[in-house]
């Protein structure tokens, strides 16, 4: 094998390896190379039990963003969300934390409101719903509070 042949086959090998690495990180890892532009908005929840940063944000079942970070703000949890630029949220949109399936991951579901005013980048969603607390629900069921 001449030096040229060796170089050629090594080139092919490295190319295949980088393609595999690219597939893994972009397709599976969700690496955002081209900076799919998004804006930040916040929402305050009374509880975010089970929600993790990186969780998806869906509107009508379509993924429109992800949870950037979760912090404590006073007695409430402040969730910073990144929403794709193409999505505009009205002032009275509702953010609720839901579960995929019964035991699945927590995600945030956004429902569009009826107002004409839209939330600007950096703004807050006012209407929020914390996740359903299954233990509390079971307790209420046992003690007969749920009709």
């Amino acid at each position: 094998m001449s030096q040229r042949d060796i170089e050629f086959s090594v080139g092919i090998f490295v190319l295949i390896g980088i393609l595999a690495l690219g597939y893994l990180s972009i397709q599976l890892g969700g690496l955002d190379l081209f900076g799919n532009s998004s804006y930040k908005i916040g929402a305050k929840f009374s509880s975010v039990t089970g929600l993790r940063s990186g969780a998806s944000i869906e509107m009508a079942g379509v993924k429109v963003g992800w949870v950037d970070k979760i912090a404590l703000d006073g007695e409430e949890a402040l969730v910073t969300m990144r929403i794709n630029d193409s999505v505009e949220l009205s002032h009275d949109s509702i953010a609720s934390i839901r579960t995929k399936g019964i035991l699945g991951d927590k995600y945030i579901r956004l429902s569009q409101g009826g107002s004409d005013k839209i939330i600007k980048p950096g703004g807050l969603i006012r209407e929020t719903e914390p996740p359903i607390d299954i233990e509390k629900l079971l307790g209420e069921f046992i003690y007969g509070k749920v009709k």
Partner: peptide, 8 residues
């Protein structure tokens, strides 16, 4: 690189 290929 071989590991990435292995995964895929």
């Amino acid at each position: 690189l071989l590991t990435a290929l292995f995964d895929v």
